[in-house]
Nucleic acid binder design. Structure first.
Length: 131
RNA sequence: GGAGCAGAUUAUCCUGUCGCACCGGUUUUUCCGGUGAGGAAAGUCGGGACACUGCAGAGCACCAUACUUCCUAACAGGAAGGUUUCGGGUAACGCCGAAAACAGCCAGUGCCACAGAAAAUAACCGCCCCGCAUGGGGUAAGGGUGAAAAUGUGAGGUAAGAGCUCACGCGGAUGUGUGGUGACAUGCAUCCGGGGUAAACCUUAUGGAGUGAAAGGCCAUGUAUACCGGGGCUCCGCUGAUGCGGAUAAGGGCUGCUCGCCCAAGCCCGGGGGGUAGGCCGUAUGAGGUUGCAGGCGACUGUAAUCCGAGAUAAAUGACAGGACAUGACAGAAUCCCGCUUAUCGAUCUGCUCUGUUU
RNA sequence: GCCGUUGUAGCUCAGGGGUAGAGCACUUCCUUGGUAAGGAAGAGGUCAUGAGUUCAAAUCUCAUCAACGGCU
């Protein structure tokens, strides 16, 4: 599989899964971001399913929410490879929710920096809970 | 030439790498090709299409609209016109521009703070008459208060005054002539002249069921029990019986109310198939766009040719690098259309205002 | 996406055409050895914003903005 891709199977799209993730999932913070994560009970179509959200409360305009989501998606797509390798090795799948809680419009470089931090932290948490 | 305001049109482009959604091909997990947000997609303010639900009927209530004619599927939209008001201009008209929720306070009711004598059948001061005076009466010319105080000018008239009378105006009602499809304009006759307010209640005229794609249809899964039909169910009469006819009425339904109409609980039998999660349809060829011709002052209509231009379901257009002078404004489709309103960088055009220079 | 409600003092709310109010909170003074309670006085408002109707608008009408709620 081409690890640069970001198909629909890699996105968390079922409503039930989303409510479960937010009610039962564990969480950690990286400045400006809230991360929800949960070990999947059953195998998923993809090693990781991810959900990206920007709250309407902080950004009233749909255009702004769209651009932030696209930037996060782009940064995730370009940097997800190490996490995937780890999970394929362990064989237990993961569900992930990324919420942007900042109040102002970030640039792409800022987003990428934070996403790298988030992925590193997620790897650590995953390793701890699997072993 | 510059600045400001208002309106209209337009809404950056190209190359490379990686990536997203849909469609088609190839084929079975890859590759190739095509297409991929807006003028407002926004606000959800009007109006429809479409879908389901409801509906015996009448009255009241409620809601909406409100100069005329036309356009439109329809509208609180648009076009052309009328009237009024405001501004410019003129000696004055004519004229030019802008705006208007622009039916009716001559149907009724209510309200009009403060001030003022009085805020709607007005007497405080003043004026005049009677009277020694207190006081009584007449009077809306003059004063002052107020947002608003009783049709203007002149003459007659009178104790003083007053549409009290007359002339010419102003405003209105009724009848009628002329022009216009009509709003209306204009002429004549008669009558009237005690305000404003209907975005106060209201009157008149016209129109009006409700819910929105989370509507709704189908499939698969499949069970509470909604719903439907029959039996049974209060009293009376007729009948041998089945059955038929009548009466009573709590309650429920029919748009909020009234009239009026309709239904008949629990229980048994049969039919039937809700919710949740999922898939398909609805769903993108339409009141469609472009161009030509014809009709119309115009909005628009007719006709011919031609084109197909997003379609997701947690939701697709992005990131990076480079170039053209630059990062470009407001801003992201979710059933679909027609309007309205609001937001908007730069450029172009039109109109108005101010100002500099040249002739 | 669709439907609806509300914006008035620092907070919670009245007022529905005629000089903007109540309770709590705040400030000063009295009372007390001191504090609380109590009493007296005071300050604090673009009535969300912009137009319109009216002599006059927080109130009536329209537009805009913001906050909140309901429908899966």
């Amino acid at each position: 599989m081409n690890e640069q891709r970001f198909k629909k199977e890699e996105r968390l799209s079922h409503k039930k899964d989303i409510t479960l993730l937010f009610s039962q999932g564990k969480s950690f913070f990286v400045t400006g971001y809230l991360i929800k994560w949960k070990i999947a009970g059953n195998p998923l179509p993809s090693p990781v399913q991810v959900l990206i959200t920007v709250p309407k409360r902080n950004f009233k305009k749909a255009v702004d929410r769209n651009t932030i989501k696209r930037k996060i998606k782009e940064a995730y797509r370009n940097n997800k490879k190490p996490l995937y390798e780890l999970i394929l090795q362990k064989g237990v799948h993961l569900q992930l929710g990324i919420v942007y809680t900042g109040k102002r419009m970030p640039t792409y470089n800022e987003v990428e920096e934070k996403i790298l931090l988030i992925l590193r932290q997620a790897k650590k948490e995953y390793e701890k809970s699997v072993s």
